[in-house]
């Protein structure tokens, strides 16, 4: 079970209040985790990554295990504690603007 922490606006869209838990089949990568988020919560399609290019939105960051994974390749394996559910995967809205 993968644990994911969403930023406040995306929690509102998805109608969730706390971190979410997702089943990810196959390798646990940023792409497979976001695929699982979008499959469970279709309203979030396009909010984390561009729906056409699949690129991370510029003001969205991905953190886990006290590391910034935002610039890692989308198909790189996530750290083991994320894959086992010991640590959550954080989708973060940049602190910027009003």
């Amino acid at each position: 079970m993968i644990r994911v922490v969403l930023p406040a606006h995306l929690k509102t869209l998805a109608h969730v209040e706390r971190e979410i838990e997702l089943e990810v089949t196959g390798q646990v990568t940023q792409r497979s985790v976001i695929d699982a988020i979008e499959a469970r919560y279709p309203v979030l399609r396009g909010t984390i990554r561009d729906p056409t290019t699949q690129k991370r939105r510029p003001y969205v960051r991905f953190f886990a295990c006290e590391e910034d994974l935002s610039h890692e390749p989308p198909d790189a394996l996530l750290p083991e504690p994320v894959a086992t559910g010991a640590e959550p995967y954080h989708v973060v809205g940049a602190i910027a603007g009003g």
Binding site: L10, G46, D50, Y59, V60, G93, A96, G97
Partner: peptide, 8 residues
Amino acid sequence: STGWFGQL
């Protein structure tokens, strides 16, 4: 929309 999370 927002600059963070795009268009709905």
